[in-house]
């Protein structure tokens, strides 16, 4: 029997008893990042393939959501910083060993490309907005530029989308100190999940039956892959080192079991899959907007739970001998 106790109280806020450094902001940022990646990936693909007649929403209306979603995501990231005024420090150095440094520089590339992608589809997608932008010389210049380099922009968009999508997963999986994150499956999982979220956004936005039908099929495939990746991730953890096995156990019992299965897998993955399958069988009804909403919810929950699980999983398992809450009397 081993009794391991902290005999001096340790209660560093947000670190003890287990990490709580990241609340909703980082999951929301990761979700927005993944969604942006999915949007850019689909939009760039359609632009490159010149299928805008066939997929009008994706090719014309969807791109503008990339910079918007990304901006909101970056706002969330900013909100998470505890030393906010030094945010500019991200851009005074490049740290090749730091995924977060890579991420911040990737974002710096993604951002203008996402704007150019939006710009080159603006006049068809949102004619009124296109006219508005054209009134300003700089706006017109950007739109004209993007239209001239449509293919190049879309190529960049495609590549950066994949980078961005992977990055949101690598950001976490690079933390070897957190057993639940330390698996190579997170990057593809987050990329696929971002694409699935983007597909859900398409289902919500499109009025085109063909587009809807196709993206329902795409989403079914993506959700299936996602499910498989989740299963592989859990298997990977459950067959890993001691701390990883312990981490995987958190979803099979303990405090994360209900959130994971009842609030994530069933409503956020299984239900949209079933509903979209029904829809494919031609049983679509007006309330079917529920399935993409659930898919988006599932996309966020995946990140939220992953972030929480990773923070809870640890190499250490120290318990205070005395009530750490008593230190609040001093703070």
């Amino acid at each position: 029997m081993l009794e391991e106790l902290l005999v001096t109280v340790r209660s560093n806020p947000k670190i003890d008893p287990s990490l709580g450094i990241w609340s909703w902001e980082i999951p929301a940022y990761l979700f927005m990042g993944g969604l942006t990646a999915g949007i850019m990936l689909f939009a760039s693909l359609m632009v490159l393939l010149a299928r805008d007649e066939e997929f009008p929403f994706v090719a014309r209306k969807l791109p503008i959501w990339a910079p918007i979603v990304l901006s909101v995501g970056m706002l969330f990231l900013f909100l998470d910083l505890s030393h906010k005024l030094y945010v500019w420090r991200f851009y005074t150095s490049f740290q090749p060993s730091s995924p977060m440094s890579w991420g911040s520089w990737i974002l710096l590339l993604v951002y203008p490309v996402s704007i150019l992608l939006a710009a080159c589809t603006l006049r068809q997608g949102y004619p009124w907005l296109g006219r508005l932008v054209d009134r300003f010389a700089i706006g017109k210049g950007i739109v004209d530029f993007s239209c001239r380099h449509r293919a190049t922009v879309a190529q960049w968009g495609l590549v950066l989308a994949v980078f961005l999508g992977f990055y949101t997963g690598i950001l976490l999986s690079a933390f070897s100190a957190r057993p639940f994150w330390n698996t190579g499956f997170l990057a593809p999982l987050f990329l696929v999940s971002g694409m699935s979220a983007a597909a859900a956004l398409v289902l919500l936005g499109t009025r085109n039956e063909h587009e809807r039908h196709t993206f329902t099929r795409i989403d079914i495939v993506l959700i299936t892959i996602k499910l498989a990746l989740i299963a592989l991730l859990l298997v990977n953890l459950a067959t890993g080192s001691g701390v990883q096995i312990e981490a995987s156990q958190m979803v099979f019992g303990g405090e994360f079991a209900i959130p994971f299965w009842v609030f994530f897998i069933i409503p956020g993955v299984m239900l949209p899959l079933i509903l979209e399958y029904w829809e494919l069988k031609g049983r679509r009804r007006a309330w079917m907007f529920i399935s993409p909403v659930l898919a988006l919810y599932g996309g966020y929950m995946l990140r939220h739970l992953t972030v929480d699980l990773g923070q809870t999983s640890s190499y250490l398992n120290y318990v205070n001998a005395f009530d750490p809450a008593l230190l609040d009397l001093l703070r």
Partner: peptide, 25 residues
């Protein structure tokens, strides 16, 4: 010093704790 040890604790042997249904904390 309060910060180091803000309260005391009563030490109980596991045999006793099991019987009384008590856990650390």
């Amino acid at each position: 010093l309060f910060e180091l040890m803000p309260e005391n604790a009563v030490w109980v042997n596991p045999l006793v704790a099991n019987e009384l249904g008590l856990n650390s904390g």
